[in-house]
Amino acid sequence: MSTDSAAPSLHEDAMPRRLGSLRLRLGLGVPLLTCAIVAVFEWSLGGFVVPAEGMARTAWLVLLLSAAQLLLIEMLMLRPLRRLAAGCEAMESAPVPLTPEDATPAPGLAAELDRIGHAMRRARGSLWQQDQHARELRRELTQQRLLLEQAQLALEANQRELASLARTDALTGLANQRAFDEALRREFKRAQRQRGLLALAVLDLDEFKAFNHHHGTAVGDAALQSVAGLLNERFKRDTDVVARLGGEEFVALLPGVGMAEAQGVLEQLRDDLRALRLPQGEGHLTLSVGLAAASPAHPYLSAQALMQAADEALYIAKHAGRDRLSLAA
Rank of each mutant, 00 (worst) to 15 (best):
L141Y: 09
T172A: 02
G258T: 01
L76S: 09
A252L: 00
L253K: 03
G46A: 03
T58C: 05
Y300P: 03
E282F: 05
H213C: 02
Q304F: 00
R23T: 12
I116W: 04
R23Q: 14
S295Y: 11
P16D: 08
M1I: 10
R186S: 13
D169E: 02
L76H: 06
L278H: 08
L148M: 10
A191G: 04
A52L: 09
L22F: 08
A175I: 00
E182H: 08
L61A: 14
L231I: 11
A90P: 03
L63A: 15
A163T: 13
R25T: 07
G258H: 02
R135W: 07
I73E: 07
L205M: 11
P8Y: 04
L26R: 10
E140W: 01
G256K: 13
S5Q: 13
L327P: 03
A275R: 15
A199S: 15
L273I: 08
P105G: 07
F188R: 07
H284L: 06
L197K: 01
L230C: 12
R83F: 04
R178A: 08
L276M: 14
F208P: 05
A36Y: 08
Q304R: 05
L72V: 13
L72N: 05
E282L: 01
A199Y: 13
T58F: 03
A6I: 12
L148F: 07
L24H: 07
F41K: 04
M259Q: 15
R324T: 15
K236E: 11
R138D: 11
R195A: 15
L224K: 02
L45E: 11
P95Q: 06
G47N: 06
R195E: 13
H118F: 05
W43F: 12
A154P: 00
Q280D: 15
A90H: 12
L266S: 14
V40F: 13
S326M: 02
T217S: 10
L273C: 07
N212R: 00
P16L: 11
H298A: 13
A309W: 00
A134S: 09
Q280C: 09
T168Q: 12
G196S: 12
Q143W: 03
E12V: 09
L230H: 11
G220A: 02
P299D: 03
P279I: 03
I73V: 11
A262V: 04
R160C: 00
E248V: 00
Q143T: 07
V38I: 15
R160S: 01
D323M: 00
D311H: 05
S2T: 14
G54S: 14
L63N: 07
W60T: 08
Q268S: 14
L273E: 03
G256R: 12
